[in-house]
Design a protein around this nucleic acid. Structure first.
Length: 479
RNA sequence: CGGGGUGUGGCUCAGUUUGGUAGAGCGCUUGGUUCGGGACCAAGAGGUCGGGUGUUCGAGUCACCUCACUCCGACCA
């Protein structure tokens, strides 16, 4: 068996057409189907199970940190959306409107939420009266609508699932801490659970969220060298509080505006997982979010004892809280191998007459396609170790890809030369002027991605104008 | 929103140049043989050709309109 051979003919190879490869995986791994409305996708059970696993990990973490889940309406009256000027200007081009109720024209049109800052603010204005009411740490899981012009499954759909945290704090310091705390939650989730290395950073002023004082984000590098903003966390200061007249009485009996944050991540993360870990045989899922962590494929299952051994093995693993399944369908073993590789199941166990006789089974790892025979004694510990190994191996591979595609540059020419070898992260110094930011993008195609929290000084001069540099910036072509 | 590509059984596509009885492979159903990398044989079911309007004796095929998907740009989670 040649391990480097492409075993699934149905998927367009990455090297031939990365975009096509991506959509092939979305469809062939049964993650999504298209619906009859442009940009609105059907998330199928296998895709949704991935989302549920992501949700569960994050939701648990949010609650540990004191956040409470709520649900806000999906409609925002136009006047409410318009209360914060920058915010409405940022979102107006992509909101969907409801203008009719039944057969009657509404007196005020309703926006289908693109994000819920305004709704939270309206509510907070009603319930925050005293410093004793702070902080307010709310989160909601819902879908939002943004009328995108071009759409792609998970990466850019008109309706997408997400989580939005909205918090209110007595002081700016507290709110700033919260902003970074949640950014870190996202970063850890990506690195630990999704095995995706990320850069934590701050957006440049031109790239900030509409209405935010500071926008932070985590940026990941995909297999093709393009960047993906994987999650964001915003510090709002008291701008919205002022616009929505949210005031509380302090201990000293004075009136003050609270300071606000919001932070979110979306089903786009599934796209990030696909484009970070996937290969020409299909999806490769990190164990933490894989709906099936271990697939057991019985070989010659009609022979006596084979299925029983498979079920027994399943039960042992199940009792150790491993998400495991036996595929006892009538398909051939080869078909099953290919099928679960396409679906990215991290670990496959083959068990047939030869194994049973030897007290063994075959364990195949999805991320590197390695196959080994292991003893059935102590199988739980073996498989647990394999799942850890899968996460670590995937992370290492992704990090190597990022490092291979990260270039330090001090001039525009160097950027262009670096990018001629393939897309990736460009690290270069910046003076802080928007004109330079625009010029870099115009001349190289690489936009500013973020100002990393961990700063280094790779030169004293701006990569564009040559004036004294303020900060190191990551640049790249983005999804 | 600009530029390309594609819409024909569930899926992938041929047929469109030159208008004349709707095709293939895969999948599906049934029966049998198989089973350590997408098995094989036999029989069977399944399509108003994305939608609309027009031209024509006759349209999957020609014209116009429209919708969707997809790729490449600009904008965005």
């Amino acid at each position: 068996m040649a391990q480097d051979k492409k075993m699934v003919e149905a998927i367009t190879p990455m090297s031939v057409d990365f975009a096509q490869w991506y959509t092939d995986i979305c469809k062939k791994a049964d993650l999504i189907d298209y619906s009859s409305v442009k940009g609105c996708m059907i998330i199928r059970p296998y895709g949704y199970a991935i989302w549920e696993n992501m949700q569960h990990i994050l939701d648990t973490k949010f609650k540990e940190l004191g956040h409470e889940n709520v649900y806000m309406p999906m409609f925002i009256p136009e006047t409410l959306l318009e209360k914060e000027k920058d915010h409405v200007e940022g979102f107006a081009p992509e909101v969907a409107w409801v203008t009719m109720g039944g057969n009657e024209k509404l007196t005020e049109r309703l926006c289908v939420r693109p994000t819920s800052e305004t709704l939270f603010c309206e509510h907070y204005a009603n319930i925050i009266k005293s410093y004793r009411d702070l902080p307010k740490l709310y989160n909601q899981w819902c879908s939002v609508v943004r009328w995108e012009k071009t759409t792609r499954p998970f990466l850019r759909s008109r309706e997408f699932l997400w989580q939005e945290g909205h918090t209110m704090h007595a002081t700016a310091e507290e709110a700033r801490e919260e902003t970074l705390r949640m950014l870190n939650v996202y970063a850890k989730f990506h690195e630990q659970d999704l095995a995706i290395p990320v850069i934590e950073g701050c957006k440049t002023p031109s790239d900030k969220f509409a209405g935010a004082e500071d926008t932070y984000a985590i940026e990941a590098l995909m297999h093709d060298g393009k960047c993906l903003q994987a999650a964001t966390s915003h510090y709002f200061g008291d701008g919205f509080a002022k616009a929505f007249d949210i005031k509380y009485t302090t201990k000293e009996n004075t009136l003050a505006y609270p300071h606000q944050t919001s932070w979110g991540c979306t089903t786009r993360m599934i796209g990030g997982v696909i484009m970070t870990h996937g290969d020409d045989n299909g999806l490769v899922l990190p164990p933490a979010i894989a709906p099936i962590q271990v697939i057991i494929v019985p070989v010659a299952q009609h022979k006596e004892g084979v299925l029983d051994a498979a079920y027994k093995l399943r039960d042992v693993l199940l009792s150790a809280d491993i998400r495991v399944k036996v595929d006892d369908s009538e398909q051939s073993p080869g078909w099953k191998f290919a099928e679960y590789e396409m679906k990215g199941v991290p670990v496959r166990i083959e068990i047939g007459p030869r194994d049973i006789e030897a007290g063994q089974c075959v364990v195949a790892m999805r991320y590197n396609m390695e196959k080994t025979s292991v003893s059935l004694d102590g199988i739980v510990d073996t498989i647990k170790a394999k799942l850890v190994e899968a996460r670590d191996g995937m992370y290492k591979k992704a990090l190597e890809n990022r490092e291979r595609r990260t270039y330090d540059c001090t001039t525009i020419d160097e950027i262009n030369e670096a990018l001629s070898k393939g897309d990736g992260f460009i690290r270069a110094m910046w003076c802080g002027e928007e004109t330079c930011e625009d010029e870099v993008k115009a001349k190289t195609g690489a936009g500013s991605r973020c100002i990393p929290l961990v700063q280094e000084r790779i030169s004293d001069r701006c990569v564009c104008c040559g004036k004294p540099a303020k900060s190191l910036v990551y640049w790249g072509k983005a999804y």
